[in-house]
Design a binder for these strands. Structure first.
Lengths: 152, 152
DNA sequence: GAAGTTGGTTGACATCGTCAACCTTTTGAA
DNA sequence: TTCAAAAGGTTGACGATGTCAACCAACTTC
């Protein structure tokens, strides 16, 4: 236990790096999004991401991607449609499903979010070389493979 | 936007690596803790960590470390004291504060958690060299410094 | 010494998450 | 081909979690 006692800089555990990095990232993006007064919360942002990046996106795609309960996603999607950010169209593949896409205003939102994220990414990358970034991605990718049981 | 379209392996964005890694970590540790039937939720685990690693730990230390509301922490601490995991003693520095520490059963819990975390860490590290790990820590540390405004 | 700030407690309520029930559609086994 | 099981999505109900406010005692600052 005493080896974890000193919580400063280079004696942080791997766990702490992983969790701190994401926490700080989230704190920064939340502050940026709130400061932009876009009226978005974290779930909105994540959902916009999934839909923007998933061809023929259904509610079930979002459920799987975000690892969330289908009830929650149904409500989220319903809210975002009501706000005019999303549109839905019948799926030709499956009558139970609707294909979700970003509306024009949803796309504008997504672009604003991307700019904010790019700003934070630039902050994160300050002082790091391209090799550092490539190494980080390679190592983090391996870690992810390991954590997801190499099924990724 | 289309450069973020392909979400497979080496074309993931930095954001995605950071958030995915922590999400998978959390999914894994939650499953392990639940499987161990310790009766702990995520906040319990985090609180045990903070107290185990903070000399003369007060509620306020936990608030600052976890970035949470003092009302929430007060309730959490009260609950954990009621469960017998924590003990409190008057602070000699400040009569408003109590010094929190792990009880014997709290320490047992913390040790069980550490074992689970070590198991997951070993999973994460499979196939990575010591140099990889050192690089990851160096790079992640730099990223954290960048994100926390170099005040860390 | 007085005013302002801080540590902690509790009330009240908002927000978020989960489970269940349900209906329609699809899938796959017999 | 038929039908039971599974799946996609919706909504009800309620539990879990988080936030803001009010308050009091203790501490700090001027």
């Amino acid at each position: 236990m005493s080896t974890n006692f000193i919580n400063k800089g280079s004696n942080m555990t791997l766990r702490e790096y992983i969790l701190s990095l994401s926490q700080f990232y989230r704190v920064n993006i939340r502050a940026a999004v709130n400061a932009s007064e876009l009226g978005l919360n974290g779930m909105h942002v994540r959902c916009l991401h999934v839909i923007a990046n998933t061809p023929d996106c259904t509610a079930n795609c979002i459920v799987k991607n975000m690892g969330r309960d289908k009830a929650q996603i149904a409500r989220l999607v319903k809210e975002m449609i009501a706000k005019g950010w999303l549109e839905k169209h019948p799926s030709s593949e499956d009558k139970r499903s609707q294909i979700l896409s970003l509306s024009a205003s949803g796309r504008q939102l997504q672009q604003k979010i991307s700019l904010l994220e790019k700003t934070i990414e630039n902050t994160i990358l300050t002082g790091l070389s391209e090799q550092d970034v490539a190494d980080f991605q390679r190592i983090a990718g391996k870690m992810l493979d390991n954590l997801s049981g190499s099924v990724s």
